[in-house]
């Protein structure tokens, strides 16, 4: 552990956003939104596993998995009428894909505020992504404690 080391994937996402002007950042967020994958077959009929992220204005549900190799995966559903929320979920899901739990815990809580999106989408809305990250970490803690 090297303390608060931002994992490479999260750092790359941030770099990509910060390289753009405000309008283009929204377009990139939309691309993330469109990239949010469908749930894998094995989770499709298990709404019970998913936790609602109430910090988001639109219904988004997440489920965190820690596989046998101790790698993290996040699955999320959000309606297509809520592209911002989908985009937030997609950023977090792509950022923590395949990381170890320790690497995820090292992601700073204020990471969502560092993407340069605050001005583009407003501080109030960005809190939805903070809630997603927070809940993702908590679920991982629960999985590895189980």
């Amino acid at each position: 552990m090297t303390g608060q080391q931002l994992p490479e994937q999260f750092a790359q996402i941030r770099e990509d956003f910060l390289a753009l002007d405000l309008r283009e950042r929204l377009q990139l967020l939309l691309e993330f939104s469109n990239e949010l994958p469908e749930l894998p077959e094995r989770y499709r009929d298990h709404p019970d596993l998913f936790e609602r992220v109430v910090e988001c204005q639109s219904p988004v549900f997440i489920f965190l998995e820690v596989d046998d190799a101790e790698r993290v995966h996040m699955y999320a559903t959000a309606p297509k009428e809520a592209p911002t929320t989908r985009g937030f979920a997609s950023i977090i899901a792509q950022g923590l894909e395949g990381l170890t739990p320790e690497e995820v815990f090292a992601v700073p809580e204020d990471y969502p505020h560092s993407l340069g999106l605050t001005e583009a989408v407003s501080p109030l809305r960005i809190r939805g992504m903070t809630g997603l990250l927070h809940r993702a970490k908590r679920q991982i803690r629960e999985r590895i404690a189980a």
Binding site: L30, Q57, S58, E81, T84, T85, G87
Partner: peptide
């Protein structure tokens, strides 16, 4: 809109 990206979709 409420959702700031909906217009872009």
């Amino acid at each position: 809109d409420e959702d700031v990206l909906l217009y872009e979709t």
